[in-house]
Design a protein around this nucleic acid. Structure first.
Lengths: 345, 345
DNA sequence: GAAAAATGCTAAATCGATTTAGCGATATTA
DNA sequence: TAATATCGCTAAATCGATTTAGCATTTTTC
């Protein structure tokens, strides 16, 4: 096929002129209102055929100006590059959005309240039809004001409990609980939990699952909280000293994938063998955990399922098929690998 | 701060009415044309102050309709989730784009010609100001027609040599050549090259760098080409049989990061020790290679540098500061790790 | 056969900005 | 002092769609 001619862009007006009809009629037909507006079938078909022939595409700016809708969804994540989870979600929601005529812009908050507020302010009043957000703590008011304006918001990965807002999260408490119970069942007794210094729901729930398992079995907790905004090097050092100071720890749960990566480095530095010296489980699956020696047991999130729910909630809200508040909680899956195998006692 | 009042959105007309001046004046001032249009300083300041006070933001749809510019850049990559490289680029170009008032939509081609054409057709005539593309083979005509329409295009990761089009790539030939020479210098003699069945420039150049090194040293090439659209499992099987059938191979270069991951699995399946039985180098760095046992030598791309060039080229073209064709070729870096250490002869 | 209803279509207002052409008042020039 | 230039600002057209209100015809109703 040759490169298309650099003809001027067609407008609905051109279509009308060519066919000798009004732009109103063309508009009605293109918007599927032919029946409703009693346009004859003959004309309807003629117009559709012509539009197809000349490959006319309505100008989105004009449509947007008139209707107030941009057909743009904002995907606001912690960091699209830092956590494969978010890139995967981005990939999976993309196609469905395009199918429905929506485009997706992305931005990264770095999990910072200020950055998130800045971004919401940057985009609000700029005709974004809907927001998919991994909310940092403290942006409740801004999110609420989006909701107040009738703009669909879907929170993902974590929730803002003070708000009545649709969200898609996983069973953080249960899945972590299951993972810790698996360690306990395998004979580990001094189980540490390395997490972030964060009150976000997903982190709080994971900690809750850990604490429940320990108290159910009368075990002593070892909890280490890291700073999200510290450098990886600093956090690795923190894990090294934590594990170094608590030499009786025989298993450790890392509450996110990147903490898991830091943790593995710390364990390497300490020259500990997995699982003989220390058993390991991490949240979130990724290649590194699959192929590490030994392979690492993980709590894996059902990414395709999560993504489907996200985009379905968003599209239903945008098309006003279902604007209700939905709280989707999906199960996560413990994938047992070598790093948590039965302890020799 | 309380949630903002759900007041109606302000328009330039409201500003004019409030201040008792025409919308023309407001528009001139907001567009920085106050001087040029001889608006008095007093009025200019008054307007700017008021606009700031009421937090007025012009309607992008209206602006877009009038100016024909959407302030949207399309980032079209192979797969935003499959290759961390692309997610990292996405992250790094995002901020700079926002600073200049641009938003970024993304889409994934799966490296398929048809998908890419479909996406370009989906977005063209939909007011996208510029395209950043990792082009699959065979979309030359479509890209050319974008260029013909004066829409800025920056190709990344690979080039379309038939086109005069700005691009940002790395020194694939030299860097691969250096990596192979490193293997040769370390005593490896039967060096295999596992790549894709693809004519794309980056893959061709990597192969070229391999072939040059081998012919420079009079060594015999062992080349295996995999199908990009085969399943990982199938490709792993392919590598297993390839290495199995050529038992004299003592080193292998994997031409992309995901091939590297497949390759490591194949080597595990074959129960070969790295580097004693087989030395390994992969293109592209990532956690898995850093922390693998043994750690994997890689050719690392300078991602921040790449991203800076991409967004700078794009913004300069969009702002018509520099609409010329620029061919940026950046050096990649060989990071020597355990997997390619000196062969004991 | 006249009034009412249905049919098939359109004129014109509107969304909110940008931009061209130009108006009245004052200042400068000759 | 009359012609011209400058100053400071504005009216109105325009971008390309959607949508309300309504206009001729034709058909139905009684």
């Amino acid at each position: 096929m040759p490169a298309s001619k650099t003809s001027k862009k067609l407008s609905i007006r051109d279509i009308g002129r060519e066919l000798g009809i009004s732009i109103t009629t063309v508009s009605f037909i293109l918007n599927g209102k032919a029946k409703e507006k009693r346009i004859s079938e003959a004309l309807t078909e003629k117009v559709l055929k012509f539009v197809e022939e000349v490959n006319f595409k309505p100008n989105m700016m004009a449509q947007g100006l008139r209707t107030g809708k941009s057909k743009i969804i904002c995907l606001m994540v912690e960091d699209i590059s830092n956590n494969l989870l978010f890139a995967q979600v981005a990939r999976l929601i993309e196609e469905e959005a395009h199918n429905k005529g929506y485009r997706i812009i992305y931005c990264s908050t770095d999990n910072k309240k200020e950055k998130a507020l800045e971004l919401i302010r940057l985009f609000r009043d700029r005709s974004i039809d809907g927001y998919i957000i991994t909310p940092p703590e403290g942006i409740e008011n801004e999110v609420q004001s989006l909701i107040n304006e009738g703009i669909p918001v879907v929170l993902i990965d974590r929730n803002l409990p003070k708000l009545k807002c649709s969200h898609v999260v996983i069973e953080n408490l249960n899945s972590t609980n299951e993972a810790i119970n698996h360690l306990i069942a395998n004979g580990f007794k001094n189980i540490a939990f390395v997490t972030l210094d964060s009150e976000q729901t997903q982190m709080a729930d994971r900690l809750g699952g850990y604490e429940k398992a320990l108290s159910d079995h009368g075990l002593k907790p070892y909890i280490k909280k890291l700073g999200f905004h510290e450098s990886p090097e600093q956090n690795i050092r923190e894990i090294v000293s934590f594990l170094g100071e608590n030499k009786n720890i025989d298993a450790v749960f890392f509450a996110t994938n990147y903490i898991g990566v830091w943790g593995l480095q710390a364990i390497k530095i300490l020259n500990l063998r997995i699982p003989d010296d220390i058993a390991v489980i991490s949240f979130d699956d990724q290649d590194l955990f699959k192929f590490y020696s030994p392979s690492i047991t993980v709590v894996a999130q059902p990414v395709p399922d999560i993504s489907n729910h996200i985009i379905k909630l968003m599209l239903n809200a945008l098309e006003e098929k279902d604007t209700g508040v939905h709280e989707i909680v999906l199960p996560a899956k413990l994938i047992v690998r070598e790093s948590s195998s039965l302890k020799n006692t």
